[in-house]
Structures are given as C-alpha cells and as structure tokens.
Computed example of a mutant assay.
Amino acid sequence: MKIRFSSPKEHQPTQEQGLKVLYAPGKRVAFKLRWYLILLVVTSPLLFLVGREMLGLWLIEAPAQLHVPSSELRAREAGQVAQVLVRPGDKVAAGQLLLRMDNPEWRSRLALLADPAKAAQDETGRRTLGERERESLVRLLNTAQSRLQQLRGLLAANAATRGEVLQAQDERDRRQRDLVEFDRREALPGDDTLDRQRRLESDWLQSRLQGLDLKASDSGVISEVLVGEGENVGPGTLLMRLQRLGEAEIWIYLDPRFAEYASPGQPFRVRLPDGTWLPAEVVRMVEDAAPVPVELREAFSAPNRNLRLLARVKGEWPAFWRVDRLGLKARFPHRWDWLNRWAVKE
C-alpha cells in the first residue's frame, strides 16, 4: 500500500470528483479552526504557567488579611450563667450589661447569715454554724489546692498555660485568706462582734454577687457568644468576644525577595473582594517571619514563611467589608533598578 502525502484537494479544494462544491471554502476554514482549537487546548497549561510567571515578574503582589481589634470577655469568678442579654451581631456601648451570673453557694451563705439561729444546728447532729462554715472553707481550699497541682502538672506537659496556673494560684490564696479570716473572727469574743462580722460578710458577698455581672469594656459589636443560660463556668472562662470600633489593621505576608518594600511609609494598593482598590501604606515591619495562613495560600503551594507587615488604608475603611480575618490582596508599585541607574547617569 502506497501512502500519499499530497492530495488533489490541496490544488482544487472546491472540486469533488469533477463537480464544484459550493460549501468547500467554508468547510476548509472550519477544518483549520478545529485544529487551532485543539492546539490551543493542548498548550493551554503551558501558556498558563508561562503567563503566571510573567505576571509574577511584572506585578509584586502579596496575600493580606484584615484584623479587626477585638476583646475577650472572661468570667472573673466561678458561677452560673443566669441570663444572656445580647446575641452575636448586636451593637453595644461601653458599660452596657451583657450577661448576668449567679453563685448558688454564695446565695446559700447569705441565707445562713440572714438567719443564724436556724442554721446553728445541722439536720443530723448538733454542729454549730461556725463548724459547718469552716468545713466548707476547708473543702474549697482543698479543691483549689488540687486544681493548682493538676494545672502545674499540665503546664509541665505543655498542656496548660502559665496564665491558668496563676489564676488557680490566686484562687488558692483567696481560699486560704477566707479560712484565716474565719478563724480570726471565731477568735473574737462577744456577740456584738459576731453580728457585726456577719453583716460585713453579708455585704461582702452581696458586692461579689453584683461583680459577677458582665459589662462591655468598650463600644463595639458582639462577634461571638460562647456560653448559654444555666451553664456553670469557672474563673477565667471565655464568655464572649467583642469587636471594638477602633481602626482595623492589615497584615501583609510579603515574599522575602521583596524585602525592600517592607519599609515604613511604603505606599501600595489593597484589593477588596469586590474588586475595589484602596490606597494604603506600610506602618511598620513586624520583626519575624510568619507562616502564611492556610486560607491565604494559593492552590498547590507549599507552606512557607513570609515577612509579616502591619499596614493601614489611607482614609476610612468601608463598613461593609469590616470583617475580621477577611482575605485581601496587596499590590506594590515596581521599583525599576535599571531605570534608576539610567536616571542617575543622565
């Protein structure tokens, strides 16, 4: 079989077995377009990679993230959540009541102080109110001591923070102080002294119960409520998160190759998710190389550490895009070294 690489159709594309074909020119164009399309599809990955490299050489871009100033509201004492007065998204003012808390143990103690004659005897024995109170204080002191030892062990295993250990130590010291004050009160003679001590203790408990209520430290928006009504919480438990109305910060993760753009006052533009560009400038360079957050990495990119910069926009940030951890794109103006050298020579 002989293969021919030439065909009569190349010389007479409009003839088919001696007959003139009217649609032959159009068919020939469609044939060419089909092969061009196939060639484009085959080479598109290569064109994409080449175009991406060229764009990277032309544009200096870096992932960025918006950080809204926020506060963590924690419980100062152990207690029970009685009422939650706000929900996520509510705007609050400084000093506004956000959450009511109660302590059943302190309420019981107030009831005993209000009626000392009734609480003078136990239901199963003849123990006095003082004995019952001292047993309760000793029990609380032992609980605080055991919790402190447990947290110290967790701190040694890197499973707890030093702040939690210090809070547990403060709680142990308060329990020791309460026990010492009780022994001192018991050593004082006279009924008038005991009555006065009961009144002082009652007022002290009332003030501590009022101090359990949580109020807003600053004006802002409630971003998260982490507890529900009826839930028991301990000292230092995170209850809410509050987004303050201060100036939002922009964290930029710049490639170390472009470290010359990390100087304070460097202008650049930041791109919002809707495509809007805002002018901004670098405030200061954070003295560390931080890993780029997972949500800001490009597809199929390896984890790396970039220079983290602190920046701000020139003007007011749009209220609609005031979202914590919002992903942004920073674009810096190119510094052409060859152009600067040419200008110096001239």
Rank of each mutant, 00 (worst) to 15 (best):
G211W: 06
G211A: 15
G211E: 15
G211N: 14
L212R: 01
L212C: 06
K215Q: 05
S217D: 09
D218L: 14
D218A: 15
S219N: 03
S219H: 02
G220Y: 07
G220P: 06
V221P: 00
I222G: 06
S223W: 00
S223P: 00
E224F: 11
V225M: 02
V225T: 06
V225S: 03
L226Q: 11
V227K: 05
V227M: 07
G228N: 12
E229G: 08
E229W: 02
E229L: 02
G230T: 14
G230K: 11
E231V: 13
V233R: 07
V233T: 13
G234K: 10
G234H: 04
G234F: 03
P235N: 11
P235L: 09
G236H: 04
G236I: 08
L238G: 02
L239P: 01
L239A: 03
L239G: 04
L239H: 02
M240R: 04
M240S: 01
R241Y: 08
L242N: 03
Q243M: 04
R244I: 02
R244W: 00
L245H: 06
E247A: 12
E247Y: 00
E247R: 14
I250N: 00
I250A: 02
I252T: 12
Y253K: 05
L254R: 04
D255Q: 13
P256E: 10
P256T: 14
R257M: 12
R257Q: 14
F258W: 14
A259Y: 13
E260M: 11
E260C: 09
E260S: 13
Y261C: 05
Y261Q: 09
Y261S: 08
A262N: 02
A262P: 01
A262T: 09
S263R: 15
P264L: 05
P264Q: 04
G265Y: 10
G265A: 09
Q266C: 04
Q266L: 06
P267K: 10
R269S: 15
R271Q: 10
L272I: 07
L272N: 07
D274N: 13
G275M: 10
T276M: 00
W277I: 09
L278V: 09
L278F: 06
L278R: 04
P279Q: 07
A280L: 12
V283Q: 11
V283F: 02
M285N: 13
V286R: 05
E287P: 08
E287K: 14
E287F: 12
D288N: 11
A289D: 02
A290G: 01
